[in-house]
Every structure is written in structure tokens, then in C-alpha cells.
Simulated assay, not measured.
Amino acid sequence: MSNKLFDGIIPKEPPVHAQSDAHTVKSRLEWGEPAFTILDVRSSGTSVLETHKAYNQCHIMGAMPMPIDELVDLAQSSLQKNRDIYVYAENDQQANQAAQMLRNTGFTNVSNLRGGLAAWKAIAGPVEGTHTMTPPGADDYNVVSRIKNHLETQQKEV
């Protein structure tokens, strides 16, 4: 049932194509569109520990880690088949392979995020992980210095 009051005001979700660029996904995030998932399937081929290490260092904000060798089992147990899914990996070939694996399992709206994490960072897409943290400064652990900094900031703003 369509609500005529909002027709034409609220944009419809774009169709998911076999390949998408980082701008498309970032646009969907910025509009706050629901019902899509970003999967980080990077797998260095060594171990699950190494795969999670790469994910923990840096990944697209909100992405779920699913190593490619566990992808089908993890996706089937946690995602709906009609959910919009964007996949990125070490390279586009690996992402295409992962997307095809999901399609072969019955997932209908799967897209390879072309360029992966590098393309995402190039357009200033939000990332999270240990590399994104600002290292602590010398004053961060000194309570007296932190109070002085706070008081100076308060005086400047007044």
C-alpha cells in the first residue's frame, strides 16, 4: 500500500547493481537508508586471526567481517536473502568472487564495492579501527594538565 502523501518526497532505494562505486554506498549511508549491509571479506589466505587483524586495523564504518572461506555459512545464518549487500575485499577479483558466492547461495541484491577500502578512503568515507585512533598526547594522562586545558578552553569560549 502506497502512502500518497509522501510519494515523490522520500527517494526510493536505488537498485543494487552487480558493481557499485564508493560514492553510491556513501550516499546511501549519508541518507540514512535502512536495510543494507557492508561485508568486509578481506582474507589474506593465511589464518582467521590475520583476517581479523586486518579488519581491526581499518574497515569501513559499520562493515561486518566475514572471511571469504566462511562467507556463505556466516551470511546464511545472519542475513536475509533479499537484503542489499555490498562486498569489499583485498581486490576487485576477490570481491567479485565473494559476491558471486552469495548470489549462488540465493542472495538477490549483492554488489561488489569497486576499489574496496582504498576507494572508500579516497572519497573520505568513514572508517574505524585501531589505525584511526589519535595517539594519546603527553597531557592526556596528567589530570592537572587536562583540568588546566579545560579551564583555558572555557575562558576562550566566554
Rank of each mutant, 00 (worst) to 15 (best):
A22M: 06
Q57D: 09
D92K: 04
L102F: 09
I147W: 05
H59K: 10
H17E: 13
L29G: 01
I60F: 06
Q93R: 11
N109C: 04
V25A: 12
T130A: 05
Q76W: 02
S44K: 03
N112Y: 01
A124C: 07
T130Y: 03
A119W: 01
M101S: 11
A89C: 13
E13S: 13
N56I: 01
E13N: 12
E152M: 11
T24H: 12
N56L: 05
H150V: 03
S111W: 04
A63Q: 10
H23E: 13
M61H: 07
Q155P: 01
A75D: 07
Y55W: 07
Q155L: 14
S78D: 00
M1P: 04
I147R: 12
D84G: 13
E30H: 11
N149M: 13
W31M: 13
M101I: 02
D7E: 14
L49W: 00
Y86D: 10
Q93W: 06
T51E: 14
G32A: 04
I10N: 10
I123Q: 11
N82E: 14
Q94R: 08
L117S: 08
P126F: 04
N104E: 14
N82G: 06
S77I: 05
K121E: 15
D69L: 08
V110N: 02
L151H: 03
I68V: 10
T24G: 01
A95F: 07
T46K: 15
Q154P: 00
P67T: 03
M64L: 15
K12T: 06
V87N: 09
L74A: 09
A122L: 03
T130N: 05
L49I: 05
A95H: 09
M101K: 06
R114A: 11
R42C: 02
N142F: 05
T51H: 11
P136G: 10
A95G: 12
T51V: 05
H23D: 12
K53A: 12
I60N: 09
T105W: 01
V48A: 15
T24L: 07
N91L: 08
Q155M: 13
A98S: 13
T46P: 00
D73N: 12
L113Q: 08
R28T: 02
S78V: 01
P15D: 14
V158R: 15
P126L: 05
N56A: 11
V48I: 11
R83W: 02
D40F: 03
D73R: 15
K26Q: 15
Y55K: 02
V143G: 06
K81P: 06
P135F: 08
P65A: 15
L29S: 04
I38F: 10
A35Q: 07
Y55N: 05
V41W: 09
W120G: 12
T134R: 13
